[in-house]
Design a protein around this nucleic acid. Structure first.
Lengths: 216, 216, 216, 216
DNA sequence: TATGAATGAGTGTTCATTCAT
DNA sequence: AATGAATGAACACTCATTCAT
């Protein structure tokens, strides 16, 4: 009675489902952290729990997929910003601010990210993760180099530090809450620290005494 | 042989157990996050599971107790550093570095901290938490004011920003891993950003162009 | 071989499981009281523990479901007996005897009933309970009125008293054990008390002696 | 230093403790049923949990002790009422009413009683229970015989039926709640049933047949 | 392929009972 | 004898995962 639907139709459906699940997972993990119950994600995606597991063989795999999707998104951003031919180096700060806003919006973008990241570090040297991660790192590195060449960012730091700072800053902003004042101040501190630094003679070592001179 | 034990003997034992549980919980939460299994904590503390629940009526209560203990420790640190009469303001940076090292050592000091913190914000306006938190904030604020008076820290930030930065930095260091190079560089960036800033005329807007001059 | 199963197939299975669980719970609660271990019920029903909790969100819910099922059964009985057009009023006694036998068979039909009932009184003014209870009460009342109209039952009692008597009698029979002699005698006392009473002038005070005349 | 207290003093203390525990247990079981937590009893008695277990080797033993105490109390009541030399037989109804009020006052006097009773039936053919039970039964029997001799109670029932009725009635009253109207009506039904019965021609025996005529 | 009911190991929590003090 | 902290088996309930339909 029911004429068999063309097999392509299914494929399209399946692909759409996969996308919806990923989207739902992203949202739910952002709201509730990676501890969220998988059925919530299914419900949000409008599919049955079985469908989630058909597309992602385990919850861990789903978390990683969300994680990787996020990394890819950031990589694209970084690449796009890097494309400008004549750069003043400020694109770097744009990227930083954008990521960090994105992260703090979704409550714990970074929670899931790091939570997954930790697990991933442990045993997902396999999978696409290392590649995706390397690509993001390279994109960030390129952006950073560009900014450093333009003199917008101090020369003594590299992409790994930037990544760590991004994650840390997202957390800091998350803690700061929604108020614009503190958020702006936090970023200002960060950005000032990232600029090429004046010759603060002997900071931490000698100058303290020196400065205390001018003060005491 | 054993001279009559003081009447508080039992109490002392119980107090020791409580301490051991707290210690074990601190360690286990640091290693595995607040999702750690309560029985692991009991095992680590060398007591039966019932004993854990005798001292802390729920897992949540245990998490909060660990959290509060950490906050208290930090408060003490801040107060001690603030006690120096003639301050150059550098104690502030000491505190910052110390906290952050402490946090990053224990894998997710801040995870549990924030995890608990989130829950706490939601419903523990009661309990000791608000008090402890206020005390820590005040201690940090005092240390910060001292440093600002001494000219060691920029004047346009307050204790809330510092708290957020502390948490974020701990996270960043955690992400950076154990290597000393990146960790030191991260802190340098942060600290530079916290210093009183030179008149970076028109940062972000004009000066960039100006500086890019000297470089491009 | 198997012709295409109706689309509700799964549902049917699930419904059967629900029924089996309910049945098993009824039996187990009857044997061991409402304190019975939920896994025993699962085992008896031939399902896993999770399945029990899928169908009944908590043990309390299961107890109540069993309770309500019993009430419904009794309501049906009462209604069926009430349907007879030309009644001599003896259906009432049939109902009474039937309920009470049913109850006493299952060791503590009434235990669970009351145990649940007590809890229910406390907080389940919601749910189906009030409705089901009202329906049973009404059915019993109808049966009672019928019997009273026919002159088979005394006029000075109502449905609430009957309900209480039913519960109490079930308990009494349960205590009396399985022997037929005592059980029959108990019911005889009850039924005699429920009949329209002769003018026992001065009961409790004098007339007893008088009547003992005509009997002794 | 502390001169050893005379050993008798301890004994008195211990005996007092035992009594207080029993009293507390009676109250707590009455309020919460035999599922009540043992520590609640200890708290109510003003002793430590260990003391409860020193006096009663297990919770079950405590329940049984309470049970037996109650039985003893009832036995005394029955005996006292039986002592009247010239009896009209109404003492029997007094006893009945008194017990039943007592039971219904304490919410589930009879719950615990029966709950314990069930267990006891199963395995406490040992202990004092059989003796105490026999004594109560005998006292009730004596009271009953007295009432039957006086013509106040029908002749075709014995002490076992009365016991069952007592328990059942207590339950019925408990279900009826606190209102005086229904309670009184319930007792009236019961008492009327217990009186010597008039020759109700054909009840249950012939009239049924008669009816079966007209019906089928 | 999608569905969603079933599974069952795992977890937080309770509480009768023991035992060092 | 009394205390009350410690014990640990037992239980209700959850949730990732499987599988019959």
């Amino acid at each position: 009675m029911t004429s068999k639907p063309p097999p392509r139709a299914r494929r399209a459906d399946a692909r759409r489902n996969r996308a919806r699940i990923l989207e739902a997972a992203d949202a739910v993990f952002a709201e509730q952290g990676p501890g969220a119950v998988t059925e919530d994600i299914a419900r949000r995606a409008g599919v049955a729990i079985g469908t989630v597991f058909r597309h992602f063989p385990s919850k861990q795999a789903l978390v990683e997929a969300v994680f990787i999707t996020r990394l890819r998104f950031l990589t694209e951003q970084a690449r796009a910003l890097c494309a400008a031919p004549e750069s003043s180096g400020e694109e770097f700060f744009d990227f930083f601010a954008r990521w960090v806003e994105l992260s703090a919006d979704k409550q714990s973008f970074v929670d899931a990210l790091t939570a997954a990241g930790v697990d991933v570090q442990a045993r997902a040297a396999a999978g696409e993760y290392p590649v995706v991660r390397a690509e993001l790192l390279e994109a960030v590195a390129a952006l950073l180099r560009q900014a450093q060449r333009a003199g917008a960012v101090r020369a003594d730091i590299g992409a790994p530090e930037i990544t760590a700072l991004l994650i840390g800053t997202a957390r800091a902003l998350q803690h700061a809450g929604a108020q614009q004042g503190p958020r702006a101040r936090l970023l200002r501190v960060l950005f000032d620290g990232l600029r090429p630094q004046p010759d603060r003679a002997g900071d931490r070592d000698r100058s303290d005494g020196a400065r205390s001179d001018s003060e005491g």
